[in-house]
Amino acid sequence: MEIGLTHYLIVSAILFALGLYGIVSRKHAVMVLMGLELILNAANINFIAFARYGGMNIDGQIAAIFVIILAAAEAAVALAILLNIYQHFKHVNVDEVKEMKE
């Protein structure tokens, strides 16, 4: 079978599911962040696959570039926030950080 669009989409779907599982099931905030990166990569694979096979051409790649930019910014800010949380709580377990609730 010729490798086509569907193959890439299936890879991206599984990667997305793995990322989602990471976000939902892990306590450690850095792990949540990693799951997020996986999801972003899954999205990027979709963009580029459609750029290659779906006729989006260069626009798909541009969209992927912006996703990478956002991921970089998000990682920087998220880690800064993490450091703050760590200084405050001495841990970064997201399920225990619920002071904003009240």
Binding site: V30, A76, Y86, V92
Partner: peptide, 13 residues
């Protein structure tokens, strides 16, 4: 990003 994450791991664990 990965370097950042590793730093994050090391700084918070």
């Amino acid at each position: 990003i990965l370097v950042l994450i590793i730093f994050g791991v090391m700084l918070t664990t």
